[in-house]
């Protein structure tokens, strides 16, 4: 049942009238300290919070070969390999191992290059060759390009003699 609105109205008026007769003071609470505190907390949380959660790039590396298996490590055809030497603002890449022809491209062109090479080669293996000057950011760029061009097989490998002859390369070996 809905309450009768007329009745309620009458009651309220009655209450107000009685209030006015007994107590005319209004209750005044000073809210300023509370507001100060609220804004203090607000600024604190705004500054302390991290909004952009970092992204994670998944990486799988092969399990450690057992000692007896080291002998029969897989051999890869030279023609199936693609080497990438990480320089500061550019990468040097070449196919094969003996007397290859080195090409230089920028990091942002890497993905397109890898994609087209991957389409033309079955079972492509990419060898990443970090130089002494190489930065971790360079490696991440290359891994990113590899992930996005669907290349499954890649390795971080040591420099070959040819890499050392490339201009501007110095060995990373300790």
């Amino acid at each position: 049942m809905l309450p009768n609105l007329d009745d309620i109205e009458v009651e309220k008026i009655n209450v107000r009238q009685s209030d006015n007769k007994t107590d005319k003071r209004t209750l005044n609470v000073d809210m300023n300290p509370m507001v100060d505190l609220a804004f203090l907390l607000l600024t604190f949380f705004m500054l302390a919070t991290t909004f952009s959660k970092p992204q994670a790039m998944e990486l799988m590396i092969p399990a450690k070969p057992k000692d007896e298996l080291v002998e029969q490590e897989m051999a890869v055809k030279e023609s199936k390999t693609l080497s990438i030497a990480l320089q500061k603002d550019q990468v040097q890449w070449y196919r094969g191992i003996t007397d290859p022809e080195a090409n230089v491209i920028k990091y942002d062109e890497l993905e397109d290059m890898l994609r087209s090479v991957n389409q033309n080669t079955d079972g492509l293996v990419v060898l990443i060759k970090p130089l002494e000057s190489s930065k971790y950011a360079n490696l991440v760029d290359v891994l990113d390009a590899l992930n996005y061009s669907n290349i499954q097989r890649y390795a971080i490998s040591d420099l070959s003699d040819f890499d050392l002859t490339l201009e501007g390369n110095t060995a990373t070996n300790e």
């Binding site: 970092p54 992204q55 994670a56 790039m57 998944e58 991440v140 891994l143």
Partner: peptide, 8 residues
Amino acid sequence: TRFNLVTD
């Protein structure tokens, strides 16, 4: 053999 690289 499986880990993540934290990136932005």
